[in-house]
Structure formats: structure tokens, C-alpha cells
Simulated assay, not measured.
Amino acid sequence: MDIKQRTQMYASLSSFARKCIFGILSVATLPSHISFIMDGNRRYSKQHNLVDGEGHKVGYSSLMSMLRYCYELGVKYVTVYAFSIENFKRSPEEVQSLMDLMEEKIEGLIKEESLVNQYGVRVYFIGNLKLLNKSVRLAAERAMDATAKNSKAVLLICIAYTSTDEILHSVEESCDEKWDEIKVLNDKKHEKDIISVLDIERHMYMAVAPDPDIIIRTSGETRLSNFLLWQSSNCLLCSPSILWPEIGFRHLVQAILAFQHNLYYLNKQKQT
């Protein structure tokens, strides 16, 4: 048996094993939305003496694996924290390298054989996209347009994003909307003039998806780092100690088991 045959056999066995495990997990309630904070790419590069940017490339492969596992399991929504607004403070060389890598990978998303098209995934880019350079922004827009008719699952990529920016954006849009309503009503007082929580949530970047059930942050960190602060009040935070490029199938299974174990408590919190 040559290397190619052994690789195919291993892939078939792995796929069969995953289906068996997913069948067991499906007996209980499954999460509909899992979010990932992909922490540790740079530390992985340093630990393995890789050149700058190689850790992020390995991390991209890990992301593709996690997406495949989630969509095989039937998780409808997956959100990834790809690039914070704070990351723009890094050196210009590193920022440009990351932007180049993002543009390359975004273009790959819309290829016919891509994972996104295999699983019928609609892609959204979430954040203050005006902060991106033109080529990356246009690539993101092309990917969103190209996948707009996909309806089996959703991938939300948070790029040039922070929760504080999202909340500020939402409040500003809510105020503008209410001001326009007031002008239409000729400045007459009306109970709809008051901005409600529902107004804020409707104008969030993340309004296209339900709140996450699980947030997985690698590197053992338990901070959210300005990610989905509004949406995460009743979700489970998992923080495996491995770096993002090291994340594997078992870490996803452990997170889902923890979610199922704590589901009663999580649902009770939502009701209070």
C-alpha cells in the first residue's frame, strides 16, 4: 500500500470515527453557534522557530479543520475572531503581512472546490470594514456576494472588529434612525422615540446570527479581548491551554460535552 492509499484509508477511518462520535453527541442538545478566538499563532511560530507569518498559515489549516468538524456536526453558525481593531497597532510590516494573507485566503473561500461551497456556507465579514485596505475590503465583498445564496450554514469572520466599536456603531445608527422618525412625526413626542435594547441589537454587526452558545479561546486565556461582549452574557467559555494551531477534534468534542453538561444552568441564566 503506497502513501496515497494509506492517507485515503486514514481519512476514511477518521471520517467514520467522527460520524460515530457525532451520533453520540447528537443524543443531547447540540450548540447552534460556536465562536472561536484564535489565540497563539505568533507564540506557535516562536516555539517552533518558524519565520514570521508561518504560524498564521498553520492556524488557517486548523481553522479549516474546525469548520469542517462543526459543519459535519450540524452547527449552523460559526464565528471566528480573525483581526481586532487593536491589531492595527502592531508593526506595519506584520499588519501588511496579515492583510496579504487574509486577502489570499478570502479569495480561496470562493473557489468552487472550497470548503465553503462544499457545505453550502454563507460568509459574512463582521466589523468596521472601512478600516481595511481597499484590496482586502473588495475581496471580502466579493466573497459575501459569491456566497449570498448559500443557506445550509453560516461563517462569520470578525475582521477590523471590537465589541466597543460594534456597540458604538449600533448606538449611532439607532440614534440616527430615531431622529429621522422624530422629524417625520413633526417633533411630536412618541413612545417610539425611546431607544430600546431591541433597537441596539437590531443594528449590531452580529445581528445576522443568534448569540453564541460556546466561545472557545485557545492559549488558556479566559479573557474575551473585546469580542462579542454584548452577545456572550449567557454562553459557555472554554479555554484549552493549547495554542490555536494545535487545536484538534478532541478539543471541539470536549467543548460540546461541557456545553451539554452545563445546558440546564445556561438556560436558567437566560430566563433570569
Results as ranks from 00 to 15, higher is better:
K152D: 09
M66A: 15
L237W: 06
V171S: 12
N226A: 02
L198I: 06
N117Q: 05
H33K: 10
L30W: 05
K46N: 12
L168F: 10
Y124K: 10
K4T: 13
V121Q: 01
I242D: 13
C70I: 03
M1T: 15
D52Q: 15
E246I: 03
A17I: 06
G55D: 04
L156Q: 13
E191I: 09
F36C: 03
G55M: 09
L67S: 02
H190V: 04
F259Q: 07
V171I: 14
V136S: 14
S135K: 12
K19N: 15
K46V: 12
M38L: 05
I200Q: 08
D193N: 14
S91T: 15
E177C: 12
E177T: 12
E191K: 12
R122T: 10
P212R: 00
Y77T: 04
K89E: 10
S174N: 08
S62C: 11
I247L: 11
A28G: 12
S219Q: 01
S219R: 02
R217V: 02
W244F: 12
S233L: 04
V27L: 13
S26H: 07
D176P: 01
I256E: 02
F249Q: 04
V208T: 07
A143I: 10
C235P: 02
S12F: 11
A17T: 11
E166C: 09
Y10R: 15
A140F: 05
S84I: 01
V208S: 11
L98D: 05
G59I: 08
F259S: 00
G220P: 10
M64F: 07
L243F: 11
K268W: 13
C70W: 00
M102E: 05
R68C: 12
